[in-house]
Design a protein around this nucleic acid. Structure first.
Length: 139
DNA sequence: GCCAACGTTGGC
DNA sequence: GCCAACGTTGGC
């Protein structure tokens, strides 16, 4: 079971908007980057990911779950781009800020720290556990 | 709002 | 196939 991290600017698509979609979820569209797309292709139904607010907020605010595996992105005719559907699972009791992640030596290897521009990233089991602990939220 | 870092494009 | 120019992302 792999873990992931999804980034979104809260002004465009934030946690509240995701929650409003309920269990039906919503497609994670608009990704136009091969690495991010490949990560989505690798996702399996039921896998979980962090929901991160980029640009303003800069913190992990909740947990989402993949509720549909990769399919064509309906926001473009370009068949190179695919997306998964995700639904909100639960919010973080305590959001985990980028600052806190950077400050934790155990999280030095995170993609979020080393390749901040990648919008859909893998998260290791250990990183998942540590961040859930920091957020006082069950994994 | 700025700008560094990164990815993509396209001329050669 | 190289690399300069350009566009975009995201932390600050």
């Amino acid at each position: 079971m792999a873990y992931w991290l999804f980034k979104s600017e809260p002004d465009v698509w934030g946690w509240d908007a995701q929650v409003a979609k309920g269990d039906a979820g919503e497609q994670w569209d608009g990704v136009r980057n091969y690495q991010a797309r490949n990560n989505m292709r690798a996702m399996k139904l039921g896998e979980k990911g962090f929901f991160y607010h980029s640009r303003s907020g800069l913190e992990i605010v909740g947990i989402v779950e993949v509720c549909a595996e990769a399919h064509p992105d309906s926001t473009t005719d370009d068949d190179r781009w695919e997306c998964v559907d995700v639904k909100a699972v639960r919010p973080f009791a305590k959001p985990v800020t980028l600052e806190a992640i950077k400050a934790d030596p155990r999280l030095k290897g995170m993609v979020l720290v080393n390749n901040s521009r990648l919008s859909v990233q893998p998260v290791s089991d250990t990183e998942w556990q540590i961040i859930c602990d920091l957020g006082e939220t069950k994994p």
